[in-house]
């Protein structure tokens, strides 16, 4: 158990570090998927396979792929080195990093970290779903939040369609533009 934990932790942390240090955007995105996979491994260790599956589905399968897709559409493969941008934002980046670090240190100090063994949360997907809908004694505010999230996603989908819609009269464009 401890060996698996150390393996996953080092995989997550080293990939996360590589995301920041890598000079190539595509490499950063791929390292990010490694970090996400490590987090999914933690969910498996905590006896929450459903969370792990959704982590892989959403973060590795969707977010990383869409990021890579965006990189490839907007930048040419040769000119993906962007050292300048990093240097220009160094002070604000340092400020944000210090803030996050202080917050994490605070959480780390007030929590009681017993070990790597899993807790006693809901295991079954059906149970998780019922809690999300505010059934079976779960706070009813959860169902409201659930609905708010679905409305938010709907708005995002409609907005994407509006943004990407072709105006009438424009020619049909089937190719990838250089």
């Amino acid at each position: 158990m401890l060996i698996a934990f150390i393996f996953l932790a080092s995989m997550t942390l080293i990939s996360a570090l590589a995301v920041v240090l890598s000079r190539n955007v595509v490499h950063s995105a791929l390292f990010m998927s490694g970090s996400f996979l490590g987090v999914a491994g933690f969910f498996v260790m905590l006896n929450a396979p459903a969370l792990a599956a959704f982590q892989v589905l959403i973060y590795v399968g969707a977010v990383t792929v869409v990021i890579l897709f965006g990189i490839m559409f907007t930048q040419r493969p040769q000119v993906r080195r962007f050292r300048l941008i990093i240097n220009r934002q160094m002070w604000s980046g340092l400020f944000v990093a210090l803030g996050v670090g202080a917050f994490l240190a605070y959480i780390l100090s007030i929590q009681d970290w017993v070990g790597t063994s899993p807790g006693y949360g809901p295991r079954e997907t059906a149970e998780l779903g019922e809690i999300l809908l505010g059934l079976n004694g779960a706070p009813e505010i959860f169902s409201l939040l659930f609905e708010v999230i679905s409305v938010l996603l709907l708005v995002a989908v409609v907005a994407a369609i509006v943004v990407s819609r072709r105006k009438t009269g424009e020619g049909i464009d089937r190719g990838v533009e250089e």
Binding site: L30, S33, A53, F54, V56, L57, V60, G61, A62, T64, V65, L68
Partner: peptide, 9 residues
């Protein structure tokens, strides 16, 4: 579903 979606990567 999750694991097949890695194939795109």
């Amino acid at each position: 579903i999750a694991v097949t979606s890695i194939g795109a990567l």
